[in-house]
Write a protein that binds this DNA or RNA. Structure first.
Length: 424
DNA sequence: TCTGGGGTCCTAGGACCC
DNA sequence: TCTGGGGTCCTAGGACCC
């Protein structure tokens, strides 16, 4: 006999904005926003900010004056803080169930198959209570037969005052109602494009989609949307993924704080991103067999000449060695860089990723590689202990002008001794 | 002056093989 | 003149996610 399928989706409310509020009780009732890297776009809004009509994704420079007038408090993103707060939330979830899928920095699914059905609601409430008590972060919980339905339950739990942050839709007589009130774009796996095409076929909400013809959906849209359709009907097609496999591509890309015009600066930036990529590779015990380097001008500046280029470099032996990867990356810049442009962004993408322990060694290369690995291990150790950039390659620049802007970043309250909050 | 970053999965089409 | 069928692998592009 197969076990029932039941999932809870736990999602932190306005996660980044809530993290900022935890350490600033003076801002408890204030509208708070968090910006993307380079202080570019709005990527998180507290409930108060949403109520003021602040748009998600809006370019900050366009709305800055208005936000100031409304008394909105604005923060640069502080991923060190959010990452640490996220780990605390996930630790708490592991106390409730061994089956936890960390889906994103602020979301996790947990499997509830092992629990009695009648306790689902109470478990959801206890999760919410404990996370708030132990971290100060508000979460919402949605429970249902499938991950797609749990997403919908979570969304309603967040919005409906009656739900109070927890909604159990498992075998609920309200499921149809919930589906009917869910717009296409609010279904997990359905974006703007698909919504538009579905509406042309007379499908206007989640209930319509759950009742659509399976063959037509399969044929017109593929298996992904068919799975969504089935999941909306309560048939679980997307299992929990508790042990995410190592990433297949590892990317580091950033816009510059100010345009880069010289090849020297471009090499510094690309060396910096290459360093990050190498660190990420080592953190998941992988090596890369190839790498893509991208550089591009600012596509929003239609008045400026545009140029973008990329180059794929294949390594003779798979590697995660910082200085080796920097070497290839800088070489690539030399080949694709053109004078006379104002560059906005660069990216380093590692590809062909393989486990470090399965790398085919070149017979004569072994001793040199071993020394490289030992050096990298020491660098990683020091940087973990004393903070990122305690030790870095000189080729990444000393205090480069292209570095991204983060003018309004809060302290790393929980991860740096010298930035701990002080209480009087 | 100022417009994020890092991923996944699926599909179609071409190259190549027997 | 005739010119199959099936499989795999790779890549680019599209769509989606947070």
């Amino acid at each position: 006999m197969s076990k029932i399928s039941a999932f809870a989706l736990i999602d932190c409310n306005s996660f980044y904005a809530s993290c900022e509020k935890v350490f600033r009780p003076d801002l408890k009732a204030c509208p708070v926003l968090v910006l993307s890297n380079n202080d570019g776009c709005i990527i998180a809004r507290s409930a108060e900010a949403k109520a003021l009509g602040v748009e998600m994704g809006a370019p900050y420079f366009k709305v800055r004056d208005e936000l100031n007038r409304m008394g909105v408090r604005v923060f640069s993103s502080n991923y060190e803080l959010y990452g640490d707060m996220s780990a605390r939330v996930m630790n708490i979830l592991h106390q409730f169930s061994p089956d936890v899928e960390v889906y994103s920095i602020d979301e996790a699914f947990i499997g509830l198959s092992g629990f009695p059905e009648r306790e689902f609601g109470a478990i959801g409430s206890e999760i919410k209570r404990r996370i708030y008590r132990w971290t100060g972060l508000p979460v919402s919980v949605g429970i249902a037969e499938t991950k797609t339905l749990a997403k919908i339950a979570n969304r309603i739990a967040k919005k409906s005052p009656k739900a109070n942050g927890v909604l159990d839709l498992f075998r609920s007589k309200f499921r149809e109602k919930a589906l009917e009130s869910t717009n296409l774009v609010d279904i997990w796996g359905v974006g703007r494009r698909l919504s538009k095409r579905l509406r042309c076929m007379g499908i206007h909400n989640a209930l319509d989609l759950s009742r659509a013809d399976e063959n037509i959906i399969r044929k017109e849209f593929g298996v992904t949307l068919l799975r969504t359709l089935l999941e909306l009907g309560g048939e679980s097609c997307i299992p929990l993924d508790m042990m995410p496999s190592p990433k297949q591509g590892i990317c580091s890309s950033r816009s510059f704080g100010k345009p880069v015009e010289s090849i020297r600066e471009m090499k510094e930036a690309v060396a910096t991103y290459a360093t990050l990529v190498a660190e990420k590779l080592r953190a998941q015990s992988s090596c890369a067999t190839a790498m893509d380097i991208y550089i591009t001008t600012n596509r929003f500046r239609e008045d400026e000449p545009q140029y973008s280029a990329h180059l794929t470099m294949t390594f003779p032996v798979a590697t995660a060695n910082t200085s080796e990867i920097i070497g290839y990356a800088v070489d690539a810049v030399g080949r694709i860089f053109r004078e006379g442009y104002r560059y906005k962004k660069a990216a380093v993408i590692a590809m062909g990723i393989v486990p470090a322990d399965s790398v085919q060694l070149n017979l004569f290369d072994t001793a040199r590689r071993e020394r490289g690995e030992a050096l990298n291990a020491v660098i990683d150790g020091l940087n973990n202990r004393f903070g990122r950039d305690a030790l870095k390659s000189a080729s990444t620049g000393i205090s480069p002008e292209w570095q991204m802007r983060r003018d309004m970043k809060s302290p790393a309250y929980t991860t740096r001794w010298d930035e701990l909050p002080v209480v009087y």
